[in-house]
Write a protein that binds this DNA or RNA. Structure first.
Lengths: 252, 252
DNA sequence: CACAACCAAAGTGCATGCAAGCTGGATGCC
DNA sequence: GGCATCCAGCTTGCATGCACTTTGGTTGTG
């Protein structure tokens, strides 16, 4: 039962994982929007490490699908397509059904208290920024996964939840997290009660409505497929002078 | 429509991904057993690259759960516990149910032909080494995942399938892959017929029986928790001189 | 003879340096 | 004026070098 120092499953060294955690959080709080550039030296300078470490961290995040690495190009925060977002949610639903199935009726009193405390925090954050709400809502699900004591499940649920988070910045309108809090409370109650089928259904519908609230329509306004976006404008290109391309300003 | 050169989603550069692929394959073919040491210099020397690249590759594989990285220690091929193996299979079942749900009745003729050809290859490999059989059986599932055209699903199914493969070397007896081939054929037939529920059930039971054939008993004879393994012998330690510790020979 | 401290070899942790590739603006040509 | 070309800079790709940690054998001591 040797106390495993810092290394979970992946997360090689300390400095690398610190940078990973920081970037992950920045991404899910939308401080770093999809498409934001992540040059190695800037990261290294900012975190007080060399490019080698920054590079390694970017590699890890790329493996998680949070950043995109292109050869000889600056790494950018990933920009999932609408379809990928929908797929991510479908996977997440299945994984989290597994989580609650394992947890139903098996939670200790202190665990239930912990969950309730977390939802209270979500409640308090309702007036604050969207970023905090989204992060807390995601962390609720990750907290659940942790309670399964299954490292693999924790890893996959975390990863896919972060990815879903990422899509929220892309396709979601603000203030779509409001009602999720009640659904979280309902989940806790059902978990405590211990009805497997019921709680799996609850989770399923909860995530499904989160997805539906988020992925309002398959119109990736800011999505990556700008060729398709520009298709409607293609006619006018030949006719008149084109308005200045609406190149999104990525950096303030 | 620039042809994306080699980079899929993760897999930063070429050299790194080459090493990753080679190691992955070596691991699932059991050329590298769980616990096998993977020193950075040896890898670098073997693949003709510097430690930097070998290190990066190890980082990626660690992110996939195939190798374990411990600070200041030589990286080793991962040694999942029995419980982790069971969890991996549970996750895999859910993910692959998703795969066949998306695929049921939507496969083209050429895709079905491709699947049949693969199973034929599995059949031919039946006389050969276990390693080849296991690899082909795993690749059948990954091939299915690819046909969903969902990069995320491909990634997760591949990862978890490799992890399951890894556990096969740990807990499975040889020749447990025999009957899987028929189940693969049944899956293809059901997919072609297009009955979603039926095919999901088939996949569920197929993977469940693979898991049951593989994870024969929760007795990790070669598992990592050697403290538990030695527990029964602890009594004798005090009484008589101990026989030479059965330290498993990891390297030929 | 058993045990503890010590030390050299091996291996990782990380930074730096140099070569190669991409980006974007300036230059020259039509 | 419009367009292709070229060049400078920035950024990544990768190897090497040094410091630190672990390891396992050796030596000294009770």
């Amino acid at each position: 039962m040797a106390a495993r120092p810092t290394s979970k499953t992946s997360e090689s060294s300390d400095k690398v994982s610190v940078i990973c955690r920081a970037l992950r959080r920045a991404i899910i709080e939308q401080a770093l929007e999809p498409g934001a550039k992540l040059p190695e030296d800037s990261l290294g300078e900012r975190f007080g490490v060399s490019r080698t470490i920054a590079r390694h961290a970017l590699g890890q995040l790329a493996a998680e699908g949070l950043v995109e690495l292109r050869r000889n190009r600056i790494a950018v925060v990933a920009t999932p397509s609408w379809q990928e977002a929908r797929d991510a949610f479908d996977i997440r639903i299945q994984l989290e059904r597994l989580v609650v199935r394992q947890l139903a009726g098996k939670l200790t009193k202190s665990q239930i208290a912990e969950l309730n405390a977390h939802v209270d925090a979500e409640d308090r954050a309702r007036g604050g920024t969207d970023a905090a709400s989204i992060r807390l809502a995601t962390e609720f699900h990750i907290l659940l996964a942790h309670m399964t004591n299954s490292p693999i499940l924790v890893r996959y649920v975390s990863e896919v939840a972060y990815r879903c988070c990422l899509t929220l910045s892309l396709y979601s309108r603000p203030h779509s997290t409001e009602c999720a809090i009640n659904e979280h409370r309902a989940l806790i109650a059902a978990l405590a009660k211990g009805d497997e089928a019921k709680v799996m259904d609850l989770m399923h519908h909860h995530l499904d409505s989160v997805a539906n609230r988020a992925l309002v329509a398959p119109t990736p306004q800011r999505g990556r497929d700008l060729l398709d976006i520009l298709a409607p404008y293609a006619d006018e290109v030949t006719s008149d002078r084109v308005v200045k391309l609406p190149k999104v300003a990525r950096r303030g």
